[in-house]
Simulated scan of single mutants.
Amino acid sequence: MSCLVIGSLEWFQDSQNGDQIIKNAIAQAMASRLDLVALYGGITAGAGTINLPTPPNPRGVLATLNATLPGNVLGGAANGTTQTAATYFTEVLDTIYKVRYGNEEPNGLIWNAKAARQYAGANDTTGQPLRLPGDVEGIPRYMSNQVPSYTQGTMTNRATDLYAGDWTQLLIGQRLGLTIQVLTERYAEYGQVGIVAHWRGDVAAARPAAFAVYRGIQGAL
């Protein structure tokens, strides 16, 4: 991964900690990109605007399952999957247990804010919030908007994906640590300074059976 930030010379001269602000912003942007590739690398269609061909991107969890263990990719209905009132958490449980059927134990669920909001707002017929099933409540749930909301047939802009897995089995190898160079001459005639950063690494699922994905589940509007 590479990125470039260009700022005015005056800003760098006048800010007391401008270099640290830029470094933190670059690190956070690269970390978010690494999360996206680790989940979706190898996916070029079917998840909104995601287009991460392999190569040059590593193959992430979903693409690995598609290629080697497609039975662990659930859902994918033409118009997405809506939650059913009487069995609201069925799809979440199916995803969790798909991992367990492979003799693995998920230690985290990943969904986006719209999916989290959809389940947080689940009520019974009397308007009381639905309690999480024990198997869902017992697994940490993490929100990442690197998981997109997209259109699936008639489910417009609210289809999304749910990941369950043993995330200790997702390997991220670092070949070249984050390096940052200051370009003081390239943009000098414009009164600017460039900051360029590079990172080199790879992603792989050590045991694909440790992961499952439910595709096209309904999130909140």
Score class of each variant (00 low, 15 high):
Ile50His: 04
Ile26Lys: 00
Trp11His: 06
Glu10Leu: 12
Asn51Gly: 09
Glu10Phe: 13
Asp19Cys: 11
Gly42Pro: 03
Gly7Phe: 12
Ala47Gly: 06
Thr54Asp: 09
Pro55Tyr: 02
Pro53Ile: 05
Asp14Glu: 13
Gly7Cys: 15
Gln16Ala: 09
Ala45Asp: 14
Ala25Gln: 11
Ala31Gly: 10
Met30Trp: 01
Pro58Lys: 08
Asn57Gly: 00
Thr54Gly: 01
Gln20Glu: 15
Gly18Gln: 12
Ala45Ile: 05
Ile50Arg: 05
Leu34Arg: 13
Ala25Ser: 14
Ala45Met: 05
Gln20Lys: 12
Gln13Trp: 06
Ile22Cys: 07
Ala27Thr: 10
Gln16Lys: 13
Ile21Thr: 13
Gln20Phe: 12
Trp11Arg: 13
Ala27Cys: 05
Thr49Phe: 02
Asn24Ala: 07
Leu39Cys: 01
Ser8Ala: 11
Pro58Ile: 07
Leu9Trp: 06
Cys3Gln: 15
Gln13His: 11
Asn51Glu: 12
Leu39Asp: 10
Ile43Phe: 10
Gln20Cys: 01
Asp19Leu: 15
Gln16Gly: 14
Ala47His: 12
Met30Gly: 02
Ile6Thr: 08
Ala29Arg: 09
Leu34Ile: 10
Leu9Gln: 15
Met30Val: 01
Leu39Thr: 07
Ala47Arg: 15
Thr54Lys: 08
Asp35Tyr: 01
Pro58Gln: 03
Tyr40Asn: 04
Leu34His: 08
Asn57Val: 00
Pro53Tyr: 09
Tyr40Arg: 07
Pro53Gly: 04
Asn57Glu: 08
Gly48Pro: 09
Lys23Thr: 14
Ala47Ile: 01
Leu52Trp: 05
Gln20Asn: 11
Leu4Arg: 08
Ala38Glu: 02
Gly46Met: 02
Asn17Gly: 12
Ala29Phe: 04
Met30Ile: 05
Leu34Thr: 12
Asn51His: 11
Ser32Asn: 12
Phe12Trp: 14
Glu10Pro: 03
Ser8Arg: 13
Ala45Phe: 02
Ile43Asp: 03
Asn17Arg: 14
Pro55Cys: 07
Asp19Trp: 13
Ile50Trp: 09
Ile21Pro: 04
Ile43Leu: 00
Leu52Asp: 03
Trp11Met: 11
Gly42Ser: 00
Ile21Arg: 09
Val5Trp: 08
Asp19Glu: 14
Ala47Leu: 12
Leu4Val: 08
Leu39Ser: 07
Asn51Phe: 15
Gly48Cys: 08
Met30Phe: 05
Ala31Pro: 00
Asn57Lys: 06
Ala31Glu: 08
Leu4Ala: 08
Gln28Asp: 11
Val5His: 08
Ala47Cys: 13
Ser15His: 11
Ile50Gln: 10
Asp14Tyr: 06
Thr44Glu: 11
Phe12Ile: 14
Asn17Leu: 13
Pro53Asp: 09
Thr44Gly: 02
Leu39Gly: 06
Ala45Pro: 01
Gly48Asp: 12
Leu4His: 12
Ala29His: 08
Phe12Pro: 00
Leu52Ile: 06
Val5Phe: 09
Thr49Met: 06
Gly48Glu: 01
Gly7Val: 15
Asn17Asp: 14
Ala31Asn: 02
Ser8Tyr: 07
Ile21Gln: 12
Asn24Phe: 03
Cys3Thr: 14
